[in-house]
């Protein structure tokens, strides 16, 4: 996909988010600046990975991009159009363009709602598609994400974590969005299930030309899925660039420390560690 000249699907200009912490008997009210002016743009069919630790502001940014929270300052453009959800609530058309998948598939599905209803609800709220077609589309989407049509009438508790994340992804795709915001979508999953969900996301991106904003703290996942990488620390984008550039030559000390902390599964590294340990043991009296 070579869309360098096309308009970005999503663009942020100097996004700032403040959280107001109310005062109490002992503390004065303060403002916490969670995002300190973030710029980014993602073109159609590309994946921007936002990397950072807890408290870095990465999920705050994801919520702004997903039109859940309004930024304190700055401008957000979806498909070239400025969006200000504080002034005007997003209508069905805009809601259909941007959808979100959350980290915890155990918390993001209503336990009392059947899977079919989970998938049809976005259509009920945002479109006037007739009931029969809603059902048809939901069943088609189930098989798209690797589930069976007979899963339609089951409840979320009857599914494993990986299957639930597939349901959450299916729900996000029901409105044919152009942008999917994924907040740590595979962090709660087992390694092999994680691989399946990442494969699914890659397939869906190809099929629907989806644009992803992928929030993660796991660099090995980011290396696999991202085109562009933005590293956030304490509300600031400390490093931004193509995946190749960031991984080949991380320039900011924070990015370097993230790389240093990521476990190495390389055989040579293990060999060195085992040798170090053996040497340390030989020195110790038995």
């Amino acid at each position: 996909m070579n869309g360098t000249t096309s308009a970005p699907v999503v663009e942020g200009r100097a996004i700032v988010q403040d959280y107001h912490v109310p005062g109490s008997m002992f503390a004065r009210a303060t403002n916490v600046r969670a995002l300190k002016g973030i710029d980014f743009r993602v073109e159609k069919g590309r994946t921007l990975a936002i990397v950072g630790e807890s408290g870095s502001g990465k999920s705050t940014l994801a919520r702004i991009i997903a039109l859940i929270d309004a930024p304190t300052e700055g401008e957000l453009l979806i498909e070239g159009q400025p969006v200000d959800i504080r002034r005007k609530r997003p209508g069905p058309a805009l809601r259909s363009k941007v959808q979100m998948v959350f980290q915890n598939p155990y918390g993001s599905l209503n336990p009392r709602q059947k899977v079919g209803d989970v998938l049809m609800e976005p259509l009920v709220i945002n479109t006037d598609v007739p009931a029969a077609e809603r059902r048809e589309r939901a069943e088609a989407m189930l098989s798209k994400v690797g589930l069976q049509p007979e899963h339609f009438n089951r409840y979320p508790h009857m599914f494993s974590g990986g299957q639930r994340q597939r349901i959450a992804i299916a729900r996000a795709l029901m409105l044919n969005p152009s942008l999917l915001v994924l907040d740590e979508p595979v962090s709660a999953l087992d390694l092999s299930v994680q691989a399946q969900v990442l494969n699914l996301l890659a397939d869906l991106q190809d099929e629907f030309e989806l644009t992803y904003v992928f929030v993660s703290h796991d660099l090995s996942v980011v290396r696999y899925i991202a085109d562009e990488v933005m590293v956030i620390s304490k509300g600031e984008a400390v490093e931004q660039g193509s995946r190749e550039a960031v991984f080949a030559n991380p320039s900011h000390p924070y990015t370097q420390s993230l790389f240093a902390a990521t476990p190495v599964t390389d055989v040579e590294a293990i060999r060195a560690r085992v040798a170090r340990r053996r040497a340390a043991r030989a020195l110790q009296p038995a």
């Binding site: 390694l191 092999s192 994680q194 691989a195 399946q196 990442l198 494969n199 890659a202 796991d218 090995s220 996942v221 290396r223 696999y224 899925i225 599964t265």
Partner: peptide
């Protein structure tokens, strides 16, 4: 299935 061992476009599961 480790993403860092991915060789092609797909992760083996």
């Amino acid at each position: 299935a480790l993403p860092e061992h991915a060789t092609g476009d797909r992760l083996p599961t």
